[in-house]
């Protein structure tokens, strides 16, 4: 019998405690939490009261480190393909055209002073696929590929989620490709002539700088 009454008593008192808590919050609703970011020194001084932020107008600032939309600064991109290879979800598509020797100046240098050796007709990032893991950013040798803190980039059409960063139009790309073929053909012709002359072919490293070595391919075969 005493348990019966103590049950009722505990029930009533805990319910009253709970109601006191919610009522305290109810009267606390005149105050609102600010929208300071976590890097603000006062962040934990402004947490009392209503904590809703009305999104499009009030935003929690994204920290500068925020890993959201991928952005490629094509000016600095050397077309090394490392990001494409590192990406676990294969959201980066890169097509490269080797720069002919006379075009090197036109192709330019990166801001770090490195000579760019590839035209990039296609550098597509499918941000709908991208899982913002940041691995591509970590392997980028020129730091041109970055995750920007832009968190809201929704689209009505999923095709718009593919971001094109290529620095050549289709016509230009065709022209460059043609040029490369011509140079190649010329070189081969020269080599063939040289061979015909009986000279030992100047066994050069055929590709001047194929930046990412095809090393992992052997490993893949092992699987």
């Amino acid at each position: 019998m005493s348990e019966y009454f103590s049950n009722i008593k505990i029930g009533a008192s805990t319910i009253a405690t709970g109601m006191a808590i919610t009522l305290k919050h109810f009267f606390n609703a005149v105050k609102r939490k600010g929208d300071a970011g976590i890097d603000d020194a006062d962040y934990f001084k402004q947490v009392d009261g209503l904590c809703t932020l009305q999104y499009p107008r009030e935003v929690v600032p994204t920290p500068t480190i925020g890993r959201y939309r991928l952005f490629n600064n094509i000016e600095d991109c050397i077309g090394c393909n490392q990001c494409d290879r590192a990406c676990p979800v294969e959201c980066i598509t890169i097509e490269t055209i080797k720069v002919t020797s006379d075009d090197l100046a036109a192709c330019g240098k990166t801001s770090g002073g490195q000579q760019k050796r590839f035209w990039l007709p296609v550098f597509d990032i499918d941000v709908a696929k991208c899982m913002t893991c940041g691995i591509c950013v970590s392997v980028c040798p020129t730091d041109c590929l970055v995750h920007s803190p832009v968190a809201d980039f929704s689209e009505f059409d999923v095709r718009n989620m593919v971001y094109h960063y290529g620095n050549l139009s289709k016509i230009e790309a065709d022209a460059k490709r043609k040029k490369l073929e011509e140079e190649k053909a010329a070189k081969e012709k020269a080599a063939a002539e040289a061979a015909a002359r009986g000279e030992a072919p100047p066994r050069p490293a055929p590709k001047p700088k194929p930046a990412p070595g095809p090393a992992p391919e052997g490993a893949e075969a092992g699987e």
Binding site: G37, I38, D39, Y43, F44, V47, C51, V60, T62, P63, I65, G66, R67, M131, T132, C133, G134, I135, S138, H147
Partner: peptide, 28 residues
């Protein structure tokens, strides 16, 4: 929980799917 997510976003750059702890170290 929001405060924790903010803290973790601040160090790792993401709110839930961090990729912060890397093999042998940390991303930042």
């Amino acid at each position: 929980r929001e405060h924790i997510l903010n803290l973790l976003e601040w160090i790792s750059g993401a709110r839930m799917l961090y990729n912060y702890i890397w093999i042998g170290g940390l991303s930042y």
